[in-house]
């Protein structure tokens, strides 16, 4: 429930302010390892396949998709078992791991003579009690269409952090938007122990009759929540008035060989509840 007063500013300055794309010289380029993915624990126990994706940073104005890192050695341990990840394609590594709430997972990567490490603990997530679609009229911030809503209930007496992902007809949907920071993640500090009714897991996903929508509700660590908070704040498009000036977003992956060449991205360990709906 972080508040962003950018909307206020935009409304205010719609008459005089002006945005245009400009050319900027960027002098320094740093090539760093990028880590995405990690361990996902499905609370319905359906699937144990874990995915980690490795890539490298590219020049900011290089408009080609970042290529995958294919020759890294990736392992994860939960303290008693070691799992080797297998590279399948374009920097995607997979392994089958049966996961357990409360377990601590450590990622180890060896790439290009450098050793990387990250540790994260798996926290629980409540189930999605119901999922439904509601038709919304056009407003100043959105077009008309069906939006997805869910109901859930926050467990009392513990700090919970949430991350919602929405898949439309099987495809993960996200757009760079100012609202992401407010809508896609949440901390329960204001609703500890309360039923959450009518949560819109991603208000940018508009549906039509016949569309299938799947919502993933991830229980995440406080640290990952803070990471996503910065990431969604900085990728929202716009100056982010009321946000701190953008800066390097620090993840949890340490370069044990050379701390100055820290990896970017995050080794995430999350529990996930999901629900699916076809709009009728």
């Amino acid at each position: 429930m972080k508040y962003n007063i950018s909307m206020l500013l935009i409304a205010l300055l719609s008459l005089t302010a002006c945005q245009d794309v400009v050319t900027v010289e960027i002098e320094n380029f740093e090539e760093l390892l990028v880590i995405e993915g990690g361990i996902t624990h499905r609370i319905d126990g359906t699937n144990n396949q874990q995915t980690i994706q490795l890539s490298k940073t590219s020049d900011f104005f290089d408009q080609n998709a970042n290529g995958g890192v294919e020759d890294a050695a990736v392992t994860v341990t939960d303290g008693s078992n070691f799992y080797d990840f297998e590279h399948i394609d374009n920097g995607i590594y997979i392994a089958d791991i049966s996961t357990r709430i409360g377990a601590t997972y450590t990622l180890n990567i060896e790439y290009n003579g450098q050793f990387y490490e990250a540790t994260e603990t798996l926290v629980d997530v409540p189930q999605i009690d119901s999922i439904y679609a509601v038709f919304e009229e056009e407003s100043i911030f959105a077009d008309e269409g069906y939006v997805t809503r869910i109901d859930t209930e926050d467990p009392a007496g513990q700090a919970n952090y949430y991350h919602w992902k929405v898949f439309k007809n099987g495809v993960f949907v996200i757009v760079p938007d100012l609202g992401n920071q407010t809508n896609l993640i949440a901390s329960d500090q204001f609703f500890d122990g309360q039923p959450l009714v009518g949560i819109e897991p991603n208000e940018e996903v508009l549906l039509e009759i016949g569309d299938e929508v799947r919502v993933e509700q991830h229980g995440i660590s406080e640290r990952y929540h803070n990471y996503l908070d910065q990431l969604l704040g900085q990728t929202g498009g716009g100056p982010g008035f009321g946000n701190p000036p953008p800066g390097r977003i620090k993840g949890n992956v340490v370069n044990a060989t050379d701390a100055a060449q820290a990896a970017v991205g995050y080794f995430a360990v999350t529990a996930v509840a999901e629900a699916t709906l076809v709009v009728e």
């Binding site: 960027i26 320094n28 380029f29 740093e30 090539e31 760093l32 990028v34 995405e36 890539s55 490298k56 940073t57 590219s58 020049d59 900011f60 290089d62 998709a65 970042n66 993960f172 996200i174 760079p176 996503l228 990431l231 969604l232 900085q234 990728t235 977003i249 970017v264 991205g265 995050y266």
Partner: peptide
Amino acid sequence: TGRYSYSGLTV
């Protein structure tokens, strides 16, 4: 100093 992709977004 560069860009990368995370969670479907370019960062």
